[in-house]
Design a protein around this nucleic acid. Structure first.
Lengths: 159, 159
DNA sequence: CTGAGCGCTGGGCAATCTGTTCAGCGCCAC
DNA sequence: GTGGCGCTGAACAGATTGCCCAGCGCTCAG
């Protein structure tokens, strides 16, 4: 659960050059290959590293428009709404939250016009009372993890 | 830019079993290795596949709390705010949006109490007028791409 | 103090995969 | 009909992987 400095360097290195391989990593980090291998195994079984899935760019797939929708759900319909949204491919992510809304979801669409279709499909379900949508204009900070990893690694100079 | 059915199968396969390797993929898909290799190269240079960075779980790093904050920015301070937020490790993602707020960011924290510290740091900056935060209770649909890839692949039975 | 457990090192092994190249073949457009 | 393009099936050397081992230093419990 806690990661030390070496773990941090492994993750950062991996994030910067994913195709790098254990051998090359051990060379760069100046440790034995077995060590890197053991650390990686541990990080993966710990769940710190979930996997190495391909990062697909929706824009390159023809879905350049991203939006966030805040949904208000009718009492007791949460499970149904979740199931409904899970069937919509354009829903990339869904969270239930505290606050003014009840759920927050990330959507993509082929165009602003197409976004209307997606939203209609999302909210065209009985349990959803209201939806408020914010279209993303610029992704100022793309999803990142390195700074957090570095911070976590520093705090834990060996668990 | 457009992907066909084979591209879709490659991506889906890769998403399900990231460690699979080109050779094994070609076996499973029933095509020649060179074909898979060429497709992969194309997908990557197209930008459809950005990379294969490790997926790190913030919760396993000691940051189990996720929240979304909607920020209102003082006119003309956008760039400064972006730069400020980029320096906060707990800010995993930042978008500028249309709608009631001006920016939407994803935050993580070590606890609900720690979230207060993070928010203070985020909003403790001159250009930010107001922040409204929603704490994530459940990640009903984790960030996913497969359904979208499948849809994109079906629409394009060979570009 | 002593012994056990643990992590890292440095080495070695066979098996596998990668990057790359080649010729052949079907298909489409010009 | 000819060229371009994509896929196949094969080959090659080079590199990497998964796995195992003995040795060594450190920490902790007895």
């Amino acid at each position: 659960m806690a990661i030390d400095h070496l773990d941090g360097r492994i993750i950062v290195l991996l994030a910067r050059e994913p195709r790098i391989g254990v051998l090359e990593m051990s060379r760069r980090l100046g440790v034995a290959r077995g060590t890197v291998q053991a650390r990686l195994d541990r990080l993966q079984s710990n769940g710190v590293i979930r996997g190495f899935g391909p990062e697909v760019d929706p824009a390159a797939l023809g879905y350049p428009v991203t939006a966030f929708a805040t949904l208000q759900i009718r009492q007791g319909q949460g499970a149904d709404v979740r199931a409904h949204l899970a069937t919509v491919p354009e829903v990339l992510e869904l969270h239930t939250t505290t606050g003014s809304g009840d759920m927050l979801c990330r959507l993509v669409a082929r165009s602003n016009a197409d976004l209307q279709r997606v939203i209609d499909r999302v909210v065209g379900f009985d349990g959803i009372v209201r939806a408020s949508t914010a279209i993303v204009m610029e992704n100022a900070v793309p999803l990142r993890i390195i700074p957090l990893v570095e911070q976590a690694a520093e705090k834990q100079e060996r668990a």
